[in-house]
Amino acid sequence: MTLIYGHRGAKGECPENTLASFRQCLSHGVKRCELDLHLSRDGELMVIHDPSLKRTTGRRGKVAEHDSEELVTYDARLGGPGWHQPCPIPRLATLFEHCDFEHWQLEVKSASRVRAARTVLAIQELAERHDLMDKVTVTSSSREVLRALNRLTPKLSRGLVAEYAWLDPLKVAKHHGCDLLALNWTLCTPERLLRAQKEGLHVSVWTVNEPALMRRLADFGVDSIITDFPGLASTTVGIS
């Protein structure tokens, strides 16, 4: 059975990476989600895709230049589906407290060695505090982040985010001790899928928004799909 992950909550229905978006995902009975993390200036894990604030809040500057107390007051509705009330940038801690997901894919973007280390240690500390170590997989396309996970937080499950085939995604995932391979759907051939699953990898395919593609990938036997429309996916391939 193919599992469903809500992409940034329910990105196609609500402002992405906001509490409203994750609650919308859960309202469809979809109990798995994918989200993006950046560290604030004071070391808090903030749920936002871009390093810059511009696209979703209209504000200048980077997440890393602001303290979390400021960031949680910024409305992140810009550029998304229309929404009736402000949707502040959330702390990851807030989502852990208010959203009962069965599994979380936490994507960390590229980072310096020092920042990667600070980020993975902060994730482990928060996951341990909320007793979620077995419900979290930290994913990244950054070798620096994957190395930090290996070196500093080996107890955390980790996954490779693969968008291009020029480096063999399976080889890279195996090298970094990954449990999960988050594949761009264009890379998901039946042959690559079978090879990955034989290596013991959970294959999660993104971003899958068309019903015909959802059905095709489910027929291939992918372990999970990541979608902007978890409600649509749940009616297309079943709630999992």
Rank of each mutant, 00 (worst) to 15 (best):
G82F: 14
A218S: 13
L45W: 02
H7F: 09
L95A: 12
A218K: 14
Q85W: 10
R129D: 10
L106P: 00
T2Y: 12
V63C: 03
E102N: 13
L160F: 06
R113E: 15
E102H: 12
L193P: 10
L183R: 03
S141H: 13
H130M: 09
V205E: 04
T207Q: 04
H28I: 03
L39H: 02
T153P: 01
V108R: 09
T57M: 12
V145W: 07
H202D: 13
T94W: 11
I226N: 12
S68Y: 03
D219L: 14
L194S: 13
P169Y: 08
A127Y: 00
K171T: 06
E199R: 15
E191V: 12
R8L: 06
Q197C: 01
R32W: 07
G221N: 01
L35A: 03
Q105K: 11
V203A: 06
E69C: 02
C87W: 09
S40I: 01
R59G: 00
G43M: 01
K31P: 04
I123Y: 02
R55S: 09
G159R: 06
M133F: 03
H176G: 01
L201P: 10
D42E: 09
V108E: 02
M133Y: 01
F229T: 04
V138T: 05
A127S: 09
C178G: 12
D42H: 03
V205A: 07
A173D: 09
L45F: 04
L183K: 03
A218M: 11
Q24V: 05
E44K: 11
L193S: 03
L194I: 04
H66P: 00
E144L: 13
G61S: 07
A165T: 00
H66W: 14
P169H: 07
S40R: 01
I123M: 09
K135M: 11
Q124T: 00
M1W: 05
P211I: 10
G200A: 05
V138Y: 05
P211K: 06
C33D: 04
D75N: 15
R158G: 00
G61N: 03
G6Y: 08
G80C: 06
L19W: 04
E191H: 08
F229I: 02
N184S: 11
M214T: 02
E191N: 10
S110N: 11
E163D: 14
P169L: 07
L78G: 01
D131R: 15
K31T: 13
I89N: 03
D75H: 05
A20M: 06
W104Y: 15
L3E: 14
E191G: 10
I89R: 04
L121Q: 14
D67L: 08
I226G: 10
Q197Y: 13
L149T: 00
H130P: 00
T235Y: 01
R143G: 08
L193E: 08
G231E: 04
A117N: 01
L213E: 15
H202R: 14
P190D: 02
G58N: 09
T207R: 09
Q124A: 13
R118Y: 05
R192Q: 12
H130N: 07
V205S: 04
E70Q: 12
Y5E: 03
R195M: 10
D168R: 10
K155R: 14
N209C: 09
G221F: 11
S140E: 07
R216G: 08
A148F: 06
K54D: 14
L126R: 12
A162E: 08
G80S: 08
V63K: 02
T236R: 09
A233M: 11
R113D: 12
T18L: 09
Q24T: 13
